[in-house]
Amino acid sequence: MKKIDKKIIQMKKLDVLHCPKCGSTFTVEGKSLKCESGHSYDISKKGTVNFVLGYGEENYNMNMLEARERVIAYGFFNEIIKGVCEEIYAHYLASGKEGETLRILDAGCGDGSHIEMIGRYFTDKGIDTELIGVDLSKDGISIAGRKDNEVLYFVADLARLPFQEHTFDVIVNILSPVNYKDFRRVLKEDGFCVKVIPDSGYLKELRRLYGMPEYKNHEIVAHLREHAKVRSERKIRAIENVEAYADDLLLMTPMLWDREITDPGAKLTKITIDVELFTFGF
Rank of each mutant, 00 (worst) to 15 (best):
R259A: 03
D274Q: 10
Y153I: 11
K267M: 05
S95Y: 03
E260Y: 00
L251N: 05
H166M: 01
M11H: 05
S232K: 01
D5K: 04
S24K: 11
G38L: 04
L14R: 11
L33H: 13
K3L: 01
V221Q: 06
K2M: 10
R259S: 05
K13V: 06
P213T: 12
E205Y: 13
M11K: 03
D15T: 04
T123V: 14
L250Y: 01
S40M: 13
P254D: 04
N241F: 04
F122H: 10
I127L: 11
V170R: 04
V275M: 12
Y210Q: 05
E165T: 03
I141E: 03
K21P: 00
H114M: 10
G265Q: 08
T269D: 12
G108T: 09
D135I: 01
Y245K: 02
H218P: 00
D111C: 11
Y41L: 06
T279P: 05
E86T: 05
A67E: 05
Y210R: 07
N149Q: 02
V52C: 15
R70C: 02
V71T: 07
L158Y: 07
T167H: 11
R160I: 01
F154V: 05
L268M: 01
G54T: 08
E29W: 04
L268T: 00
V16Y: 13
K204G: 01
C19E: 12
T123G: 14
A90K: 12
V28E: 07
F278E: 09
L209V: 07
T129V: 09
L250T: 00
A73S: 11
G83F: 09
K229R: 14
S232E: 02
L224F: 00
V151I: 10
K229A: 08
L175K: 08
T279I: 13
E86N: 06
V16R: 12
K147I: 06
N61V: 08
N61S: 09
Y215Q: 03
A266K: 02
M212A: 04
T262E: 14
Y215P: 03
S37A: 14
G108Y: 03
K147L: 07
A266R: 01
Y60E: 08
K204H: 09
S32K: 15
I4Q: 15
G96T: 05
C85S: 06
V28K: 03
R234W: 00
E130M: 05
A222M: 10
I220S: 12
Y210G: 08
D148Y: 04
G126A: 04
M212D: 10
C35G: 12
V151N: 09
V155P: 12
M255D: 11
I72A: 06
D148I: 02
R231S: 08
Y92A: 06
L224G: 00
C35T: 14
L277E: 11
T279R: 13
